[in-house]
Design a protein around this nucleic acid. Sequence first.
DNA 1: GGTTTCCTCTGACTATTGTCAGAGAATGAA
DNA 2: TTCATTCTCTGACAATAGTCAGAGGAAACC
Lengths: 301, 301
Amino acid sequence: MNDAQIEQVRRFNRTVTERVGVLRDHYLGLDRPIGEARLLWEVGAEGRDVRGLRERLSLDSGYVSRLLRSLEADGMVTVEPQPEDRRVRTVRLTEAGRAERARLDERSHGLAGSLLEPLNSAQRERLVAAMAEVDRLLTAATVTVDAVDPGHPDAEHCLRSCYEEFQERFDSGFDSTRSLLPDPGELRPPRGLFLVARLHGEPVGCGGLKLPADAPAEIKRMWVAPRARGLGLGRRFLAELEARALEHGRDLLRLDTNKTLTAAIGLYHSCGYEEIPAFNDEPYAHHWFEKRIAGAAPRPE
Amino acid sequence: MNDAQIEQVRRFNRTVTERVGVLRDHYLGLDRPIGEARLLWEVGAEGRDVRGLRERLSLDSGYVSRLLRSLEADGMVTVEPQPEDRRVRTVRLTEAGRAERARLDERSHGLAGSLLEPLNSAQRERLVAAMAEVDRLLTAATVTVDAVDPGHPDAEHCLRSCYEEFQERFDSGFDSTRSLLPDPGELRPPRGLFLVARLHGEPVGCGGLKLPADAPAEIKRMWVAPRARGLGLGRRFLAELEARALEHGRDLLRLDTNKTLTAAIGLYHSCGYEEIPAFNDEPYAHHWFEKRIAGAAPRPE
DNA sequence: GGTTTCCTCTGACTATTGTCAGAGAATGAA
DNA sequence: TTCATTCTCTGACAATAGTCAGAGGAAACC
């Protein structure tokens, strides 16, 4: 990362916070303090627990409580205990609250429009494309990847989603008990490891590594949630798994995959994996790959 | 402008304000309220008038005064009357103030770095490029273009800069009194008009239109400040001048230009101007163009 | 049943971010 | 000189944003 890049990021920050900030104040800050407006927004059409609101906006519990009293007094929300657990209280929008939220939404829409408005259509397209790219990459930068136990709820959520997707996509359907890895417990140290990617705390992808004593390390159960695709997460998993394999003294990685997973196959090729003859008899595999990793720097950059 | 575009802009706003906002609070908000920090920053190394600070940050005069007293009490700045006009007071950083500002600068540098830090180098390059594009286009969107009297200080500033640039670039140098438009007063209504572009109130470009009674309208003295290039301002001036010419019932536009102004020549070509034989004997011209504008929509989009 | 933990709320405080009216000094115009 | 204007400052006031300690009800654990 060089100084010219840093300078550009700083210029970007200045321009964006100034322009977006000014317009946001202009559009949203009219009749309601920002704190209340954000809260109203976060409650959403469905309603939400007080706790959830606090976490989402990372505010003090007393403060949230006071904001809620104020919104309640204005007739925007109702707050009621949950039937299952009467300690937890659920916030719901009233009719008036929904109307107010719709107005906020409209204004926010107007704000976005006013950013585009002065530009001609070619410029608009370029701006929107560049914004999508910034959005994607900043989001990618907030994704964390950590090793967890395969029994962890987040891990199980990912595995379940992964199996569901296999079931849908594979010509033959998918039954994990018939695959060569019936029990993800095999991905628990010391026999392997399991990584989970999270975005804002929500699990959005996983990747496992088998470390058999008498055979090369093997990548298993790599999956990225649809909403997190396009962030380079697949590539990041591969890099991370390669690094971990290296740390365990391995210099060769293998994996198998189904012919319907074309994006994954492309990824493996572009990350230096080479197709080899079948090294196992996984019933769901059509392609087998390997990559020699010894000596390479453990992480990009 | 369509809804998908608006949606993308809103997603962008959310991601960016969240990510940049969190980090800014984390980096800058440590020991000094943001108001003071911004003020300290805006004073800059050179010092600045109280009035200028107020305008730049658009704050109440009483509030600025109070912030300054606070910074003064901390030994960060000194405030002294200007010698020429003792009503106006100038703020300057003390030694300690400069040190503090340097710390802010360092933190802001760190903030920018931390946005890039989690990405690999290919992603960094893409992010920085996209940020530059967003920055450029948002800046372009804040540029205003207005008709002013050619005697207005902003207009004169632009004309002077324009002549200086001609002087530097033309093989023969440039002397405005020898050109076919010795007096920009000819660009005053009703004989013509003069547009000035401004960015944050600073003049950054100009374009004139001659409207002779017995000849086609003619574009003169088009110029864009170096720091405002790449924003599509030239194209915007042409569109604006064409629209104004149309409003005056003209259907043909002409212009001449010097061979050293290659970017301008490219612009004319790409905007539909066609090269024609010399229609005047401007001593500094090598190329002559015209464009028929009748019937076209007055403005892009 | 008793204890602990969780969740929300209230009261008491503080700091920040302003807004407004007018005072007082300096300047420019008539 | 007088008068209006410009510029900054002070005092009074208010809203917003946030922190902290602890009360009290509900659920979970032993």
